[in-house]
């Protein structure tokens, strides 16, 4: 992959982001719901309401508002949240690391579960464990992430897992003056293993809820790719050389079967971020998904705009990373 390719992709991201900004701005002005109507107190006169509109710049014409919005965006200013009266950029950047850590944990769990299921299915191909793997992945896939979340909460109550938290991100017994919101990473760097353990425990159930449906998809795609790889000549050669079956599946075939799975994982990451909206709400996990629900309910236009743009940047970045990973996984694509 050349530098030119990377630059082209980055340049292409600009019109994409402009398009997203325009669409979200127009859509939000079309859908019903007036943020000021939700704010006004009893006894407000039309003049009081007008003053509130002026305060948030909503008294201007649509074109004026758009020009102002784009002008501010170019300067890196996402505006001020109507419902929270705080800087949108600060709010979003404060929550983004929380969701990113959760999604990464979910991806790792999904790859571990999905990968294990796929390798096990191929290893025992044609025997009853393969049917078991197919059945398990089918069952996992049939239940959406938010339902897994509710089921986990139910299990916690029924089986009284007293050490397993079901809300929040960090134990309230721990004091941690964080420098960033990447608690997992920061706690490791600062050797605060109490924080690391607490954050890990708090993200376990939400991450598992997000990971399970994805793990089933990974298992299916990877198993299919592995089965195809197992028919290739190099696998036959490995057999002739007397390699063990597990070595052939897990080391020889797996690497060549990974490209479709990586593509899929990259695409699914975007769905995973979407899934955080409900899962974070259920587990009171303070990421951008949770914030997005409140922003929509409150019709907080600047905050919704900021969140959508952040999601868009995230999706573009993930897709770019996926493209770059091809080059690492498949040497033939490095100069393609």
């Amino acid at each position: 992959m050349s530098l030119g390719f990377l630059l082209r992709r980055l340049l292409l991201a600009i019109p994409t982001l402009v398009g997203v900004a325009v669409i979200v701005f127009v859509l939000l002005r079309i859908v019903p719901g007036d943020p000021i109507a939700m704010l006004i107190g009893p006894g407000a006169t039309p003049a009081d309401i007008q003053k509130l509109r002026e305060l948030y710049g909503l008294d201007r014409g649509l074109l004026d508002q758009f020009v102002l919005y784009v002008g501010d965006l170019i300067q890196g200013d996402f505006g001020v949240s109507i419902s929270l009266r705080q800087d949108v950029m600060e709010l979003v950047l404060g929550r983004l690391p929380i969701t990113l850590e959760l999604c990464l944990a979910a991806i790792v769990i999904a790859i571990l579960i999905g990968g294990t299921l796929a390798v096990a299915g191929v290893y025992w191909r044609g025997r009853w464990p393969e049917a078991g793997v197919d059945g398990v992945s089918g069952f996992i896939l049939a239940i959406p992430d938010f339902l897994w979340a509710l089921l986990f909460i139910l299990f916690v109550v029924i089986f009284a897992f007293s050490g397993l938290p079901i809300s929040g991100r960090l134990s309230h017994e721990i004091r941690f003056d964080a420098l960033t919101n990447f608690y997992l990473l920061e706690s490791l760097v600062r050797l605060r293993f109490d924080v690391f353990g607490s954050v890990l425990l708090h993200m376990l159930l939400p991450a598992l809820s997000l990971a399970l449906p994805l793990s089933a998809i990974i298992a299916r795609v990877l198993k299919s790719s592995l089965n195809e790889a197992m028919t290739q000549d190099y696998v036959l050669l490995a057999r002739v050389k007397g390699f063990s079956r597990i070595r052939i599946v897990a080391r020889e075939a797996l690497r060549n079967a990974l490209v479709p799975t990586v593509t899929l994982t990259g695409v699914q990451f975007t769905f995973l971020v979407g899934g955080t909206v409900l899962v974070e709400k259920i587990f009171s996990y303070p990421g951008i998904g949770n914030m997005a629900i409140d922003a929509v309910i409150n019709r907080d236009l600047p905050l919704i705009q900021g969140l959508v743009l952040t999601f868009a940047v995230l999706f573009i970045a993930v897709n770019l990373l996926v493209d770059m990973s091809y080059a690492v996984l498949n040497p033939r694509m490095r100069h393609g």
Partner: peptide, 20 residues
């Protein structure tokens, strides 16, 4: 005093039922 922000009703039920 700790106010845990638990927005989902099912999770609040679990919080009190499990003694958290």
């Amino acid at each position: 005093v700790v106010f845990k922000f638990v927005t989902d009703p099912a999770a609040r039920v679990a919080e009190i039922e499990s003694g958290r």
